[in-house]
Simulated assay, not measured.
Amino acid sequence: MRVLIFQHTAGEHPASFTDHIAAAGDSAHVVHLYKGEAIPDLALFDAAIVMGGPMDVWEEEAHPWLRPEKRAIAAWVESGRAYLGVCLGHQLLVEAMGGSCAKMAVPEVGVMPMMLTEAGCADAVLSRLPGANVGPVRVMQWHGVEAITLPEGTTLLAENENCPVQAIRVGARAWGVQFHPEITDDLCAYWMTDPGNRAAAIEWLGSAVAADQFAADSAAHVPTALQNSAALYAGLRAAALEG
C-alpha cells in the first residue's frame, strides 16, 4: 500500500507512523510542503496522512501552499479514499470540507483524557484505541485552535471538556484527530527545536521553563502513544484496503 504524507514543518514529521508503515510492508511518500515541494498525482496513492504544524489553518498569506493543500484534501476525501489528519491535519480536513476552525480561549497542552462518543466506540478506526470502550483515553495535546463548525456528513467520535471536537469522521473514510498520537522518544524535545513550535509552547504555557518541562514529561506517555498510533494506522490501512 502507498501512503501519501503531507508535512508542514521540519519539527512535526510522521514519527511513529513511519515505523508502522514500514512494519506493514507499505511505502510512504512525504511531501515537505514548507519547502515548496509539489503535491504529486493523488491517483498514485492508497491512503493519506496529514501531519500537524505551528501555523494556523487560515494563514494562507504566510503559507500559500495551504491553498493547494486544502484543494488536494477535498479532492482526496471526495474520492472516498482513506485519510487521517493529525492536529493541523484534522483542522485542514474540517476547513477543506466546508467547516470552520477558530482560536481557543485557552490552548490545550499536555497529556489529557478524552472520551469516545457512542459513534466513536463503534467506529472502525477509533474503536481500536486501547481501552476506548471502557473509559477515558489519554492522549497528547498541543493546539490552540479547534474545530467550531463541522462539515456536512461529519460524525463526532471523541470529545473532552477543553475541546469538544477531539476526533471526527467525515463521510465514510476520512478521519481527523485533534491530538498527537505520533510521538516517540524525545519527539517533543525535537519539536522545541522548531522556532515556531517553541514560541507557541512558551506563549501557551507561560515560560520557557514550563515549555521544556512539558517536553521532558512527554516521555512517560510514549508507550501509550505508540499503542494509539499503531491502532490508528491499522484502522486506516484496513479502510484503505477495503476501499
Rank of each mutant, 00 (worst) to 15 (best):
A15V: 00
T18Y: 09
D19M: 13
H20V: 03
I21F: 11
S27E: 13
A28T: 08
A28E: 13
K35G: 04
G36P: 04
E37R: 06
I39G: 05
L44M: 11
L44H: 11
D46F: 04
M51T: 01
P54S: 10
D56K: 04
V57R: 00
E61L: 13
R67S: 13
P68E: 01
E69D: 09
K70G: 07
A75C: 11
W76Q: 03
W76F: 03
W76L: 00
V77K: 05
R81I: 12
R81D: 06
Y83Q: 03
L84K: 02
G85M: 06
G85S: 09
H90K: 10
Q91L: 05
L92A: 15
L92S: 14
L92Q: 15
E95N: 00
E95Q: 14
E95Y: 02
C101V: 01
V109K: 03
G110Q: 06
G110C: 06
M112A: 08
P113Q: 04
M115P: 03
T117A: 02
A119R: 05
G120N: 10
A122M: 11
A124L: 13
V125A: 07
L126T: 12
S127G: 01
S127N: 11
S127Q: 08
L129Q: 07
L129N: 10
A132M: 04
V139G: 08
M140L: 11
M140R: 03
